[in-house]
């Protein structure tokens, strides 16, 4: 197990280095000149050149990359070309919003998806299953921005159950934060809940028919235990894989959701910095997202090996 963890950790570090190179190169391949953007439209060529030198953009690429990595390791992500604020500060202010939002959305999606999928599999061929299947198709196909607008219109403005916009930190006031985040999290999580539900259902159906489930029944194990301890337990690997894959969609989905609900999160920061060619901010944002991705994949892999003993490759007693 320790060996497995170390190997995965090492792989994550390599991935991270590669990702930093890709991010660095990718941002510089974007059309548009940041020095021009920073110097303003009225600037003379000399002024632009001065700005370029000041930003270090006249140096060879590898020098720029080296400086980028050095700063990165000391926690310095640079300063925003647009506002002059340190990037780490910008990210520090917006990251928690997005993090809370995605964690909440994911939690909602997994809980709802697992329960709905299990119920649909156990109630196979009934009206309940038909209803849940229909709901999942709706959840998958309706775009989240439209769902978000409907929710604001009816649940927030119409019924007044939820605030239509704004953010409260869960650290400061958990209850109010829950109130503010519920609507966006549910909207963001709906699509994933639908996918999780369908996968859980399919996997549960296969597992409920499996030989070892029949053998468990032959031992006298009750239906409830067969469903949860045997079928659901063995379906979790599929769900964990799926959730890991869906996270990318979740982060880009957060950009849209934050817009609709006026949340001061990462999504807004990303959009603004891309439009103004704010290299340091884009780099910082993409790096943080990549980092989150790699960490999550690491967590998924570790979860795997906990859920499925066959994945634990130790070599000690095989």
């Amino acid at each position: 197990m320790a060996h497995f963890l170390l190997t995965r950790l090492w792989q994550s570090v390599v991935t991270l280095v590669l990702a930093s190179m890709v991010v660095f190169a990718g941002v510089r391949a974007l059309p548009g000149d940041p020095a021009l953007a920073a110097a303003g439209e009225e600037a003379t060529p000399e002024m632009v050149a001065a700005v370029r030198a000041q930003l270090g953009l006249d140096q060879p690429l590898w020098v720029q990359y080296w400086r980028f990595v050095k700063n990165l390791l000391s926690g310095d992500l640079g300063t925003s070309v647009r506002t002059g604020t340190p990037v780490s500060e910008l990210i520090g202010a917006t990251l928690p919003v997005t993090a809370w939002l995605t964690v909440y959305a994911l939690g909602f999606a997994v809980v709802v998806g697992l329960i709905a999928g299990t119920v649909a599999a156990v109630r196979r061929g009934t009206v309940t299953e038909f209803g849940l299947n229909t709901l999942s198709v709706v959840g998958l196909s309706v775009p989240s921005f439209w769902l978000g607008l409907l929710a604001i219109l009816y649940l927030a403005v119409g019924l007044g159950w939820f605030p239509a916009s704004g953010y409260v930190s869960p650290v400061e006031d958990p209850l109010r934060a829950l109130h503010h985040l519920t609507l966006p999290a549910v909207i963001l999580g709906t699509g994933i809940a639908a996918v999780v539900m369908r996968q859980t259902r399919a996997s549960m159906l296969a597992n409920l028919e499996a030989d070892y489930v029949r053998t468990a029944r032959a031992k006298g194990v009750s239906q409830a235990r067969v469903v949860v301890r045997f079928a659901l337990r063995n379906s979790l690997v599929v769900v964990v894989t799926l959730v890991g894959l869906q996270l990318g969609g979740l982060i880009s989905g957060a950009v849209v959701t934050e817009r609709i609900f006026g949340l001061p999160g990462f999504g807004k920061l990303t959009l603004d910095s891309v439009f103004s060619r704010d290299y340091p901010v884009i780099e910082g944002v993409v790096l943080i997202v990549t980092f989150a991705y790699i960490i999550i994949n690491l967590v998924v892999d570790v979860l795997y090996s906990i859920l499925d003993p066959r994945i634990r490759v130790t070599g000690a007693n095989s």
Binding site: D211, Y212, T215, R233, N234, D308, P309
Partner: peptide
């Protein structure tokens, strides 16, 4: 079938 009749986890 002994291969499929035990709970793998």
């Amino acid at each position: 079938d002994p291969m499929s009749n035990l709970n793998p986890s």
